[in-house]
Each structure stands twice: as structure tokens, then as C-alpha cells.
Write a protein that binds this DNA or RNA. Structure first.
Length: 580
RNA sequence: GCCGACGUAGCUCAGCGGCAGAGCAAGGGACUCAUAAGCCCUUGGCCGGUGGUUCGAUUCCACCCGUCGGCACCA
């Protein structure tokens, strides 16, 4: 990319996006929390001329996928690949511009994961130990804690899960359960001894405390608080292997019945996906530009991990520890974790009717424009706390904000140009103070919105874009070219020209947030190529250019339409293999 | 139970030591280029509760209540 201004030294920015778990489709909450924000951020960073690599992929391993596959009588690979294809298709329709969206099943990922394992083992950061685990003799498999249920020893609740009692909220050990049974077969689990490899996190305690102390200055309070909590409690070793036949094989002889477990291999994906990106381009060393520390131990750029809040310790404690142990690779610069989207004030649920659950991405994208979805998820993004989703609010923000403020500012102007000037951009006369003020506001919006996005305050950034649209509406009302065209044609022409420059800027400013409509506006302004190849600065609209007949940028959602659409949103049941 | 974040106008959310803010909703007005969209004006809050620190607290501290999340075998 050559968008850099002369005074800008391009930075290497790695945008690592949380790896969606391929157990089923993702819903709007996932998109709001982890998937749309990095896309906005990455698009902006590209426009200012940085070397951006946005990578992620589907997380294909883990127990829930094996359980769901067993129930359907297919292999875990089939199930995961089917879900991966669905997720990738949704992401494309949402406009997520990944440089590499891959999976944890690639040869590169297996090789890199095994290399991490071997290196950490050789350096003494892994150890082997025996533990007692629950085993389902009927299913012939070991059971994770939450796949065992029984009576809670604290409150007597009969359907307590092995990890936690949903009734009294206490954390449990499955061995404590009275009358335990397997969630998969109902059989009574046995306890068995089994051997596993552990990541020796206590060895990183001091180094992590030092790193978090420095790195967390710009983190969100919840991210820092959560991380400090883990550190204060004292790190414990954590098993990184499981008794499964689905996962990355352990690169040692004699461990055929065990696999490296998902959380260990999934975070490595940020790195392996970068390596794979280079390999696919025939540049096997390209990853070094984002990851390799220099001789002073300095990172080559900034590394971001966009995740949901449930994922924080993996990205601020465990993954950094793995990177420190491996050596020579950059640690995260920021981990912008979002809170959750709730639905109609309730905790989200994937098992309720549409009125009480967040829609899955495929259905949402079937019913609504991607930009309308992106707009809602960003203008009300759960950056500091949980935010609420409701269909009323979705409709209102679409109609009263996106359509009425931004869409209409563009459309009223282009329509006026079409009807009174035959669509030809007029030549301006002398600028008034009001004209100059409008253009100055437009200029400053670039730096304001840019700063917001760079600080990952995406909600503020989008509000800044909307504020410019509002300012344009005000300017037009004040200038009233529909009046001055009768009394002072040159004044009207100048007002129109000024307003058109602002619309031309809005096309650029909105591009990271609303990529599809920005592209449509780009075309409506008679420009060639893609808006996404433009630099982050005003692009003028020359006098004399003839613009095509305008069409509204966005679709208004009428009550009847919305009701009809929601009527098609039938209850969807997806078995993700998760215990309920 | 323990840890963390959050609790601000009817709704959705900003602000975080010095006369309480935005958008939307509600009420009123002038206009007509526009998907009856836009613009102007107005109404509206003991900033969850109690105590403390301070000249001064929505903002800092403690406790309480509520919501959400985590508590290491979900990812």
C-alpha cells in the first residue's frame, strides 16, 4: 500500500482477531464484540498507509465439536469444516477484510503449534504430571468437568454441572458431585488416572507482572483489572493436553491417544496465520516484519488482539507467557476486549425464540444490509460495558440516524444537484466564512475520527462521522441554496460546491465503518476504482464533473417490513456440543 | 463464597474533583432540496444507596444493594 503521506513512516500493525469456535454459526454478539471492531481498525490503518495484516481463522478442535459431531454421526473434521465454511461466508458478507482467514487444521498451523510445544518443553516451561479425571465408560472418553452433572454438595440442586452449580453459583470439582452422571450418555463416570503436559505459568509470574505493569497503560480498565486479578491470585500451572483423538498431535512418541488442547493451539493461530500468509505469497520470512524482535528485544510494530471479555486471560496472561517462553516474538500491544451485547435486557441466549435471542449472522445478513448491521453494532458498541440489543432500537437507529441523518444529507444534496444542475458539479465563487467553517470542520473530522479509531474508540469515531453529517445538514439549511438559486446563482453554486466537498469527504470517513455504502457513494460521486484504496484525507470533487443519477444509500425499515422480516426469523436450534 | 467491571434524563449511552451531557423519544416553531427526511427552540436527572476524605464529590475511598463476567477441564 502506498497511502502514506510523505511525513508518515509506515508502521507494522498486526490485527489479530479472536478465533471463532467452529461449533456453529456466530451471532450478532460475537460480531459486536470481536469481529467488526478489528475490521474498522484495520481498514483505517490501511488508509493511513500502515502495513496492516489482519489474521484469524476458525478454531476447529476441542471437546464440544467432537460431541456435536458424534451426535450427528459425522467426523469432527466434517462438522468443523462445515461450520468454518458458514462462518467464513458470513464474515465475507459482513465485509470483514481479512488478509488471511484460515483454520487451525492447516499443515502450517500444526507445524507451528508443535514447534511451540517442543520449544517450550526443551526450555523447561512444560512438565508432565498425573491427574485424576472423570471418564465415561460407555462413551469411552474422558469428560471435561462441565460434561459431568449431579447433585450439588452445597445446595442440593440436582442438575449442577461439574464446573459450577447454576443454582447456587459455587465453583465445583466434579468429584464433589453427589450421584454424578455423564452429560453425554448418562452413564456413571469413573475416575481414572491420566498423564498430561502442563504449561508452567508460575515461572512467568514475575516477568508477566513487569510486562503487564508497562503494557497495560492504555488497556481498558476491565482488561487490566481482570489481568491483575489473575496475577494477584498467583498463577497456576495449566494442562495443555487432553485425552482426545481430535487436535494437534503431541510431537513425541508414545502419546498417540492424546492431543494438544484447543486453547493452547488457538492462540498460536495469530502467529501461524501470519506465517501461512507469507508462505501463500511465496515469502516465507514475511512474518518477521510483524513478529520478530530486534537485537534490543523491541517489537517491530504494534500487535492488537481483538476479543470478547470472556477471553481476556488467554490474551493477557497465557499467550504472553507462551510468547515469552518461546522467545524472539512480539507481545500484544493492546487487547481491546469488548463487553457483551445483551438482548432485550437479558443475558444472551442461543436457545430462545428470536424475540429473546440474538440473531445468528447468516439470518441477520439475509434480512438486513451489512452496513446497517455494522452501524448498529458500532454506534452502540459494548466498549465499556454490556450494551443492549433490541429490534426497536435497531430499527430506530437505522431509520433515525443512519438513514435520516447521514443517508439523507447525501441524498438531498445529490438530488438537488441532479434536478437543478443536471448533475454537474458547479464552479464555486468566493467562499464566505460559513463555507470556510464547513470545510474546516470537514478537515478536522479526519484527525478527530482518526485519533478515535487509533485509540480503538470506534463508537466515538463513528459518532464523529455522524456529527459531520449533522453539520452538513445544518450548513445546507443555513445556506438554503434552493432559495439563493433564484436570487444569487453564484452563491447557490458555491454553497453546493462546498457541500459536495463534504459529501466527498464522508465517503472516505465512513469507509472503515460502512464499507459497502462508502463504495456506493464513491460510485455516485463519479469516481473510479475503490474507495478502500484511498488515503485518509479529503478527496475533492472537481467542478464540472457530471454525476450519475443518485439513489438512496440506505434502506428505511418500515414497521410492516420489519415485522415481516422478523416473522421469517424462526427459532433456530443449533447443537454446538456444549452442555446446557 | 472470592475477584473484577458496571449502575448517570422515558430509552440507548458519554463524562469521572469545580454551576449535570449527547443521540433518540416527548412538546412547540420556521422551512421545502431530500427516503415526511433535515433545521431551530423547549421540557426532562437528589449521576443505585449509606457513610467518609475534601473548601468543593456524579467524579476519590469504604461498605451495602443490583446487573454482567471470571474463579484456571468452555472457548
Amino acid at each position: 500500500m502506498t497511502n502514506a503521506r510523505p511525513d508518515h513512516t509506515p508502521e507494522y500493525i498486526l490485527v489479530g482477531v479472536a478465533w471463532p469456535y467452529a461449533s456453529g454459526p456466530r451471532h450478532l454478539g460475537h460480531a459486536a464484540g470481536a469481529y467488526v471492531p478489528p475490521d474498522i481498525f484495520a481498514r483505517y490503518q490501511r488508509m493511513i498507509g500502515n502495513h496492516v495484516l489482519m489474521v484469524s481463522g476458525s478454531d476447529m478442535h476441542g471437546t464440544p465439536i467432537t460431541v456435536a459431531a458424534d451426535k450427528r454421526g459425522i467426523t469432527p473434521r466434517q462438522l468443523a469444516e462445515e461450520n468454518h465454511a458458514g462462518i467464513a461466508a458470513s464474515f465475507e458478507r459482513l465485509g470483514l477484510a481479512y488478509d488471511n482467514y484460515t483454520t487451525t487444521l492447516t499443515p502450517t498451523h500444526y507445524r507451528v503449534t508443535q514447534d511451540f510445544f517442543t520449544t517450550l518443553l526443551d526450555k523447561g516451561y512444560l512438565f508432565e504430571a498425573t491427574e485424576t479425571a472423570m471418564y465415561d465408560p460407555q462413551a469411552k472418553r474422558f469428560l471435561p468437568d462441565r460434561y459431568v452433572e449431579g447433585t450439588c454438595p452445597h445446595c442440593g440442586y440436582e442438575d449442577a454441572r461439574g464446573d459450577q452449580c447454576d443454582n447456587c453459583g459455587r465453583t465445583l470439582d466434579p468429584i464433589e458431585l453427589i450421584d454424578p452422571r455423564s452429560k453425554i450418555t448418562g452413564a456413571t463416570p469413573e475416575t481414572r488416572e491420566t498423564n498430561h503436559f502442563y504449561l508452567d505459568l508460575p515461572k512467568f509470574q514475575t516477568a508477566l507482572e513487569a510486562w503487564v505493569g508497562e503494557a497495560s497503560v492504555n488497556w481498558r480498565p476491565a482488561v487490566t483489572g481482570f489481568t491483575q486479578g489473575w496475577l494477584k491470585e498467583g498463577l497456576r500451572a495449566r494442562a495443555i493436553t487432553r485425552d482426545l483423538d481430535w487436535g494437534v498431535p503431541i510431537p513425541l512418541p508414545g502419546y498417540d491417544d492424546k492431543r494438544i488442547y484447543v486453547w493452547f493451539d488457538a492462540v498460536i493461530g495469530y502467529f501461524s496465520a501470519t506465517v501461512e500468509w507469507g508462505e501463500l505469497r511465496g515469502e516465507p520470512d514475511a512474518w518477521k516484519k510483524w513478529w520478530a524482535l530486534d537485537e534490543h528485544g523491541r517489537a517491530p510494530g504494534r500487535m492488537y488482539n481483538f476479543i470478547g471479555k470472556d477471553n481476556v486471560p488467554f490474551h493477557t496472561v497465557i499467550w504472553p507467557a507462551m510468547l515469552m517462553g518461546y522467545g524472539g516474538l512480539a507481545l500484544p500491544y493492546d487487547v481491546p476486549a469488548n463487553e457483551f451485547l445483551t438482548i432485550d435486557g437479558m443475558k444472551l441466549s442461543s436457545s430462545r425464540m428470536y424475540t429473546a435471542r440474538l440473531p445468528f449472522l447468516p439470518e441477520a445478513l439475509e434480512l438486513f444490509d451489512a452496513d446497517a448491521i455494522r452501524f448498529f453494532l458500532t454506534i452502540n458498541a459494548p466498549e465499556n460495558r454490556d450494551t443492549d440489543f433490541s429490534w426497536d432500537d435497531f430499527q430506530r437507529r437505522n431509520n433515525d440516524e443512519l438513514v435520516a441523518t447521514y443517508g439523507n444529507a447525501v441524498h438531498r444534496l445529490l438530488s438537488f444537484l441532479q434536478s437543478k444542475y443536471d448533475g454537474v458539479v458547479p464552479t464555486p465563487g468566493d467562499l464566505t466564512d460559513a463555507d470556510r467553517a464547513m470545510l474546516a470542520t470537514m478537515e478536522s473530522t479526519f484527525s478527530e475520527v482518526g485519533n478515535d479509531i487509533d485509540k480503538v474508540k470506534l463508537r466515538d469515531g463513528l459518532r464523529g462521522v455522524m456529527a459531520l453529517a449533522t453539520a452538513l445538514n445544518r450548513y445546507l439549511d443555513d445556506a438554503a441554496p434552493w432559495k439563493t438559486i433564484k436570487t444569487d446563482p453564484e452563491r447557490a453554486a458555491t454553497s453546493l460546491w462546498t457541500a459536495l466537498q463534504v459529501v466527498a469527504a464522508l465517503r472516505v470517513l465512513s469507509a472503515p465503518f460502512l464499507p459497502f455504502s462508502a463504495e456506493r457513494l464513491h460510485t455516485l460521486l463519479g469516481d473510479e476504482g475503490s474507495v478502500h484504496a484511498l488515503p485518509w484525507q479529503p478527496l475533492g470533487l472537481p467542478a464540472g464533473r457530471s454525476l450519475p443519477k443518485p439513489e438512496p444509500l440506505f434502506r428505511k425499515l418500515e414497521d410492516d417490513d420489519l415485522a415481516a422480516l422478523l416473522d421469517r426469523l424462526k427459532p433456530t436450534v443449533v447443537d454446538t456440543g456444549e452442555p446446557t
